[in-house]
Nucleic acid binder design. Structure first.
Length: 289
DNA sequence: CACTTGACCTGTCCGC
DNA sequence: TGCGGACAGGTCAAGT
């Protein structure tokens, strides 16, 4: 489940691995995984273009090209962007065994570079996508145009506060998952932030005062910063641009810990369903609203 | 407009 | 062992 820390970890890897490489080929194995927007053409705007940078907004990755176009991607739940270059095939590289297996049956798109290195877009469930589009069109994607503030950049509080207060009747977990309220939070970090802030996930936004809202935002920032330090969370599928798993879940306080004791009060953690998602919480630290 | 639910997919796990 | 069904969860379309 790539959320902000996972997508940022991929971005950092790609920035180091593919900037300045020149695209030589693109192989689309699953048509629905690759789109070309109006105003862009594969032959003119992707082939022979150099990668000039890799940006992120929320959970969306943007690979900028020298052609004036951008390869936008969303990993959704099971997407991976894994780079394989010559330097990874030397004896002893810890990921040789994993990388040697690519492409595999989840590979949807293969971007080849002119030095024979390759970037694999793997996605077991085909929910994720790549889209080639003119750079000037990127900000007009509905997803990006409506997106809330970046939680780890600057001071997101004023904008977060303004936006979350538009959803007074929704529960706080649904609001945190809404990318137009704040960018990049998904199911794992929503549960972790609400546990840290001691707020029950079903609490209506209208019942959360500003002090608590601030505490929730600060908690979300803290758990995502910590996750970034550990390469994100690997539940099942997630790997970074070099095929490495993330280890944050060993630090998680509630996610997938139902039935185990709360690390703060010792009570048995529960799992329920809130906002249509599996939701983990402590019934003592986070009392029902 | 605010809010909720189901669809999109594939693989895994559980009970029979 | 095989098989049906529940489940995983990000986003969007369609529903209330």
């Amino acid at each position: 489940m790539p959320e902000l820390p996972e997508v940022e970890t991929v971005r950092r890897g790609l920035e180091r691995l593919i900037v300045d490489r020149v695209v030589a080929s693109v192989e689309v194995l699953s048509e629905k995984s690759f789109a070309v927007a109006p105003g862009a053409e594969v032959a003119r705007d992707l082939l022979d273009a150099a990668v000039t940078g890799v940006r992120r907004r929320g959970k969306v990755l943007m690979t900028d090209l020298s052609s004036g176009c951008c390869l936008v991607s969303h990993l959704k739940m099971t997407g991976q962007l894994v780079f394989v270059g010559d330097e990874h095939w030397g004896a002893g590289h810890p990921n040789d065994s994993l990388l040697a297996e690519l492409p595999d049956r989840s590979t949807r798109v293969i971007i080849g570079f002119d030095d024979t290195s390759r970037l694999f877009f793997n996605d077991q469930r085909k929910f994720g996508w790549l889209q080639l589009m003119p750079s000037a069109s990127v900000d007009q994607l509905d997803l990006l145009a409506a997106m809330g503030p970046e939680p780890l950049t600057g001071d997101p509080w004023p904008e977060f506060h303004r936006r979350v207060r538009r959803h007074q009747r929704a529960n706080i977990k649904a609001a945190l998952l809404d990318q137009s309220v704040v960018a990049g939070i998904g199911n794992i970090y929503a549960d972790e932030a609400l546990w840290a802030a001691e707020v029950h996930p079903s609490t209506p936004v209208s019942a959360v005062n500003d002090e608590r809202l601030r505490r929730i935002l600060d908690a979300a920032r803290a758990v995502m910063e910590l996750s970034l330090e550990h390469g994100g969370s690997t539940d099942r599928n997630y790997v970074d641009a070099e095929g490495r798993r993330g280890s944050y879940l060993t630090f998680a306080n509630v996610f997938r810990r139902q039935g185990q004791p709360c690390r703060r009060c010792g009570a048995t953690l529960f799992k329920t369903r809130v906002a249509g998602r599996g939701t983990h919480y402590c019934p003592v630290c986070q009392p029902e609203p």
